[in-house]
């Protein structure tokens, strides 16, 4: 094995790969099972975007809080939410992360620093400011992170939060995961500025744009912004340009995409393939090591689905519990 040229140890590279692969297989499996009609409601899949969640979350600990969005499975897994509990939640089971009361769009685990996926686009940005404010006032080293897509970055909540974070000098990072489509609408049409860095500058914040399919680019850019925030340097914006392999939601025919776009992206812009190429070419990890992880991840996802299917459903008693702490 050659000398490791990467900013992560071999162990951390294995962790990062396992996390990305877990997200990928979680989503691929949901795609199949949703198509079979086994999953209630609707799901928004993160497949193709894994390098963003994992490249960022490798820097965070449980004290750091993230506010996610409707496309939240990847953020949850990367932040350490239990995969089997997530699957059970998506199946509406009482063993789920939220006892079957939240579903795909509301998975949360505050003990892991996951403030919640969110069905309201842009709503997480003020909440992330609150997490940053709490860290600031309680005097711990944590940060808040807001994840929005290119679409939700047009919401007033997002824009107000940029200003509030700047005015209060909060340790908050606004991640814009730009996959080119707000549901079906192109970012080129719906966002008036050419770059989110320009938008950040308009609010007095530094911003960085990276290729979100390149794990190492995300990792390094996020690391610098997170370090800055932890040291009291204040908020910033990170734009990850990335690829969404599936539609806005499952069942989306994606006729707004160019012909062959998904196939081309899977072949040439798959962040997992790119990661694998980097680490094997450098001789730091072998295909055998990565293949072994692939096998383990597939087994985990299979077990998660099996356990979710056989888990008990909530009962009528669960309908009215946990509305309040006390009432």
């Amino acid at each position: 094995m050659s000398k490791n040229p990467f900013p992560l140890s071999k162990d951390d590279l294995l962790i990062a790969y396992r996390m990305m692969k877990t997200i990928r297989e979680f989503e691929e499996r949901l795609h199949v099972d949703f198509g079979r009609g086994e999953i209630p409601g609707f799901v928004h899949l993160y497949a193709g975007e894994e390098a963003s969640a994992v490249g960022i979350m490798m820097h965070l600990n449980d004290q750091d809080q993230i506010a996610s969005n409707h496309r939240g499975h990847g953020h949850c897994i990367a932040k350490g939410v239990d995969v089997k509990e997530m699957m059970a939640e998506i199946y509406g089971k009482v063993s789920g992360s939220c006892r079957g009361k939240g579903g795909s769009m509301h998975i949360a685990d505050l003990s892991k620093g996951m403030m919640g996926a969110n069905g309201i686009l842009g709503a997480g940005s003020p909440l992330a400011c609150g997490a940053g404010l709490a860290a600031q006032k309680l005097g711990h080293n944590g940060i808040g992170m807001s994840f929005t897509g290119d679409g939700a970055s047009n919401q007033g909540t997002f824009l107000e939060s940029l200003n509030l974070a700047a005015v209060w000098n909060l340790p908050v990072i606004f991640v814009v995961e730009n996959n080119g489509y707000a549901e079906s609408t192109s970012v080129d049409w719906a966002v008036a500025v050419d770059s989110y860095v320009d938008r950040a500058a308009g609010f007095g914040l530094p911003g960085v744009t990276v290729d979100g399919t390149e794990f190492f680019a995300v990792y390094e850019a996020a690391g610098e912004l997170i370090k800055r925030a932890r040291e009291g340097g204040g908020p910033s914006l990170l734009e990850c340009k990335m690829i969404r392999f599936f539609g806005h939601f499952e069942g989306d025919a994606q006729t707004y995409k160019a012909e062959g776009e998904n196939e081309y992206n899977r072949k040439h812009h798959d962040c997992l393939k790119i990661f694998r190429a980097h680490v094997t070419k450098a001789g730091v990890l072998s295909d055998e090591e990565l293949d072994a992880i692939d096998t383990q991840v597939l087994a985990l996802i299979d077990a998660a689905v099996e356990e979710a299917i056989s888990a008990p459903l909530p009962t009528a008693d669960d309908l009215t519990t946990d509305v309040y702490v006390s009432y």
Partner: peptide, 21 residues
Amino acid sequence: DTPLSESAYIGAAIGAATCGL
């Protein structure tokens, strides 16, 4: 004091409430 941004600061108060304040 806050900027005139009710969504942002009411939301920040709510977020902070889930994080120990």
